[in-house]
Amino acid sequence: MSPSPDLRPSRGLPAVVPYGDSAFLVELPDLAAVIAFYRGLVGAGMTGRPEGVMDVVPAARTVLVTFDPEVLAPSDVLAWLSGAEPDHSAAEPGRAVEISVAYGGPDLAEVAGILGISEADVVRRHTGAQWTAAFAGFAPGFVYLVTDGDQLAVPRRSTPRTAVPAGAVGLAGEFSGVYPRSSPGGWQLIGTTMAVLWDSARPEPALIRPGDTVRFREA
């Protein structure tokens, strides 16, 4: 299965490649392109998707589309992808989520030092920005959040912690995120929330899904 020619650079898609016999991987130039293409595919709740498309999964530079080959031919999936128009609008298709955070995490002072600002300014930037859930990964309920607002880009810790508590709010690179459960981790921790990021007993287990917008509020 080779990618259809109309999925090449004329539509802004560097490559669409088979990923096994029931998925295609769309490779995109950057995270902004991923978000726009993902929005284009899932707009209006994916009501226009072909029957047989199982899931659409964004990542940092790719979008994975899985399908049931017993229901949908690969050529039909490619045709659907070729017709997708990236959505570059400011409007967000997802939900608005607010998370209350007690700032004062163990790395807050270090983050402030790296950025050359005060700890209060770190908090101000974090709470003042509107964050977008770009993609999920690492653990159930964990999403990578990005913002067009004041940047808080800092490197990961040189030595990861063996255990980060559930609810820890961190920064790493261009991303912010909340640890849904206790696990090892190397993000810079700036606060803690009591919000439950993943609860399998809920109808929708994930508190935040790709496409949602997030606002952090100081507790």
Rank of each mutant, 00 (worst) to 15 (best):
V53S: 00
M54H: 08
M54I: 14
D55M: 06
V57M: 05
P58K: 05
A59C: 10
T62L: 03
T62D: 07
V63A: 03
V65Q: 02
V65D: 01
V65L: 06
V65G: 03
T66S: 13
F67E: 13
D68E: 08
P69Q: 07
E70W: 07
V71M: 13
P74F: 03
P74D: 04
P74S: 02
S75V: 11
S75F: 09
D76S: 15
L78M: 14
L78R: 13
A79H: 10
A79L: 06
W80K: 08
W80R: 06
L81M: 03
L81W: 01
G83V: 00
G83K: 01
G83R: 08
A84M: 10
A84N: 08
E85T: 15
D87F: 09
H88V: 14
H88D: 13
S89G: 14
A90S: 13
A91P: 02
A91M: 11
P93F: 05
P93M: 06
G94W: 04
G94T: 02
V97I: 15
V97P: 01
V97F: 09
S100F: 09
S100V: 12
V101H: 04
A102K: 12
Y103A: 10
G104K: 08
A109N: 04
A109Y: 05
E110F: 04
V111C: 05
V111H: 03
G113I: 00
L115M: 12
L115P: 11
S118I: 08
E119G: 01
A120P: 00
V122H: 01
V122G: 00
V122K: 01
V123E: 01
